[in-house]
């Protein structure tokens, strides 16, 4: 007889489940903490697209965004013990993702290359030949901003996020976010006007 098949194999997803049809994040996190990959897989499935879009909003590159999103989940898994349940899991996850995306921006900040393809499908709300060129210039100028400034601008203006939410993601105060955006706009003005 196999005395303990639950621990008889190498795979952590062999752990016992006690789950409802709709499994909430906290339960999945608890199971993941016990080494249950399947439970963590459900969390990944649940948030992967939202996180990917968030990373994309910051990085403006699909492949980099997907890489960063994957790295975020891997980091989250190994740091799950540090997660505090009083916060939403998604907030914690997006915070990690934001930091990782920021690091990518930092790495790329000295070698920024503007993606021509981006301009091809970037549309303003009021497109026109002149304004389109201006928007292209604006986007290019944003890529030249300091990474934290870029991040704040992208999240606020192009993701429609509130200062408070950006502050949470960046682990800074709301005032700092406002200040970052102000400095970013000053820099953009210098570049464009």
């Amino acid at each position: 007889m196999i005395a303990n098949t639950k621990t008889a194999t190498k795979f952590p997803h062999n752990c016992i489940y006690s789950m409802n049809k709709k499994i909430d994040d906290k339960e999945l996190i608890a199971q993941s903490l016990q080494g249950d990959h399947t439970a963590f897989g459900i969390l990944v499935d649940r948030y992967k697209n939202a996180l990917y879009r968030h990373c994309f909003a910051i990085l403006q590159d699909e492949y980099t965004a997907e890489d960063v999103a994957q790295e975020t989940f891997i980091t989250a898994y190994f740091k799950l013990k540090l997660y505090k349940s009083e916060y939403k899991f998604a907030t914690w996850l997006f915070k990690i993702g934001t930091n990782k995306a920021l690091n990518v921006l930092r790495k790329n900040s000295k070698t920024v290359r503007v993606d021509d393809d981006f301009f091809a499908h970037q549309k303003s709300k009021h497109p026109g030949p002149d304004t389109q060129a201006l928007f292209n210039e604006l986007e290019h100028a944003v890529t030249l901003l300091k990474p934290k400034h870029q991040l704040a601008v992208r999240l606020h203006y192009w993701q429609g996020m509130k200062y408070a939410d950006i502050a949470t993601l960046m682990s800074v105060s709301e005032g700092t976010v406002k200040s970052l955006i102000y400095r970013a706009k000053t820099q953009l003005k210098k570049e464009l006007l």
Binding site: F11, P12, H37, F40, G41, V44, D45, K48, N49, Y52, R53, F56, A57, Q60, E62, A65, E66, A69, Q70, F73, I74, Y77, F78, F118, H121, Q122, K123, S124, K125, H126, T131, L134, F135, L138, E139, V153, Y157, W158, Q159, G160, K185, L188, L192
Partner: peptide, 27 residues
């Protein structure tokens, strides 16, 4: 100008192997 720029969306979703890749790396 910043407010006028429309939010750019990715043209594709994450790859089909996304979750598997994450779990494989963890394993």
């Amino acid at each position: 100008m910043l407010e006028s720029v429309e939010k750019k969306q990715p043209r594709r979703n994450v790859g089909a192997q996304f979750t598997t890749n994450v779990l494989d790396t963890i394993e």
